[in-house]
Computed example of a mutant assay.
Amino acid sequence: MHKCVLTSLALAMISGAAFAQTSELDGLIEAARAEPPTTVYAVTGKIVETAEAFSLKYGLQVTGKKVNESGQIDLLIREHQAGNVTGSVSLASDASVIIADLLSQGVVESWVPQDIAPYLPESARDPLVVVSDPHVWAYNSEAYEACPISNIWQLTDAEWSRRVTLMDPLDKPAYADWFNQLAEHHDAAVAAAYEANYGKPFDGAGESATQAWVKAFAANSPLIGDSSVVAEAIGAPGQEQPFFGMLSTAKFRDNESKGFKLAICTEMQPFSGWLYPGLGVIATGTPAPNTAKLFIYYLLTDEGIEAQRIDGKVPSDPRIGLPDDEPSGVGDVMDQMMVWNTASATSDIDARQDWQDIWRMSLTR
């Protein structure tokens, strides 16, 4: 399945496809026009312009609201408990909580258009993954002719103490879940990277290679910040010794708007980054269920996802590609990315606090 997902994502680099009007779509449009206005939540501010374009296209009143992962979960639960659902669609919230808790409790439901489902990889259908958000290891291309790092274990060495940056796993749960994904599905690859870097097999005395790496990485005093702090620390021009680090490809737009010099570190062992699943779910009990379905349908088209494609977010439908002017170039390294396994959502949730505790106790500032 791992190779199939990679193949499907790699195929997404082809040019965008046109989507014909269908009877399913016609029925949704007609039913939606009899429903009240509604709101859609997403972690990206691009949802505002997407909702505006959607409303104009279909003659509906849908408002886009940027809400972070934990905020979306809180809103979905509180609105469900109150029986007063305002936000009918949640996009790219906390994937593990959505899958392990909210779907099973009936707070949200996953819906996939019959017209589009056959084109999606099986791993993106239940629950629906609208896009995957790449988080990549990055460096400053002005300061370095090529990436100065080739192996994640280098980030635990004294040479890179206080010179690596990323978002806080205590505040950004996807990063703690990334540790669990590595440990559960790719620990052998982390151990192989250790051997490649140090010339001897990993011997953790009962400790996984991933756990040993997380501890050593945190102990090497990385700079913790929000996405803007991380992007500036790595990519701001004029630095003699810029930081190395991890961030979402969405921040590569700063190369044009701010003159940053962000570049992806390719051929990194064991991975150059990871693909976080951006789920699209519908709030159970919304007074605008057909509008919600129509909006999900819209997000699965090249027109509906255009604003996010330019940020390097990879559509699940392989008929839709990344734009030629997507600034990060992540389309060229899809085979070097760790693909998220949504089947491990329960494990990710159960282990999240443990990984955050390991990080917290090991972190040296």
Score class of each variant (00 low, 15 high):
residue 23 S to T: 15
residue 205 A to I: 09
residue 211 Q to W: 05
residue 254 D to W: 10
residue 80 H to D: 08
residue 228 S to F: 14
residue 219 A to Q: 14
residue 134 P to W: 09
residue 277 P to Y: 13
residue 318 P to H: 14
residue 271 F to C: 05
residue 365 R to M: 07
residue 152 I to S: 15
residue 30 E to D: 08
residue 319 R to H: 13
residue 216 A to V: 05
residue 180 N to I: 00
residue 282 I to D: 11
residue 118 P to C: 02
residue 338 M to S: 07
residue 222 P to E: 13
residue 116 I to Q: 00
residue 343 A to G: 14
residue 285 G to L: 07
residue 279 L to K: 10
residue 198 Y to E: 15
residue 139 Y to T: 04
residue 179 F to A: 11
residue 270 P to H: 02
residue 264 I to T: 00
residue 359 W to R: 01
residue 7 T to A: 13
residue 218 A to E: 10
residue 229 V to Y: 09
residue 285 G to D: 11
residue 170 L to D: 15
residue 92 A to Q: 08
residue 309 R to M: 04
residue 200 K to Y: 13
residue 17 A to K: 07
residue 2 H to E: 15
residue 165 T to W: 01
residue 56 L to M: 08
residue 88 S to W: 04
residue 263 A to I: 00
residue 295 F to S: 10
residue 47 I to P: 02
residue 12 A to M: 02
residue 150 S to N: 11
residue 75 L to A: 12
residue 235 G to L: 11
residue 184 E to R: 13
residue 125 R to Q: 15
residue 246 M to E: 07
residue 81 Q to W: 05
residue 52 E to H: 08
residue 195 E to K: 15
residue 86 T to G: 08
residue 287 P to T: 07
residue 333 V to E: 01
residue 257 S to L: 13
residue 97 V to L: 14
residue 108 V to F: 09
residue 37 P to N: 05
residue 84 N to M: 10
residue 251 K to P: 03
residue 22 T to L: 12
residue 284 T to V: 05
residue 266 T to P: 01
residue 228 S to K: 14
residue 113 P to K: 10
residue 149 I to V: 15
residue 134 P to M: 09
residue 302 D to C: 03
residue 51 A to G: 03
residue 245 G to S: 02
residue 254 D to P: 03
residue 127 P to K: 03
residue 122 E to Q: 15
residue 149 I to M: 09
residue 69 E to Y: 03
residue 150 S to T: 08
residue 37 P to G: 08
residue 319 R to E: 06
residue 353 Q to Y: 02
residue 326 E to C: 01
residue 307 A to L: 12
residue 75 L to G: 06
residue 57 K to P: 06
residue 342 T to M: 13
residue 12 A to S: 12
residue 336 Q to S: 03
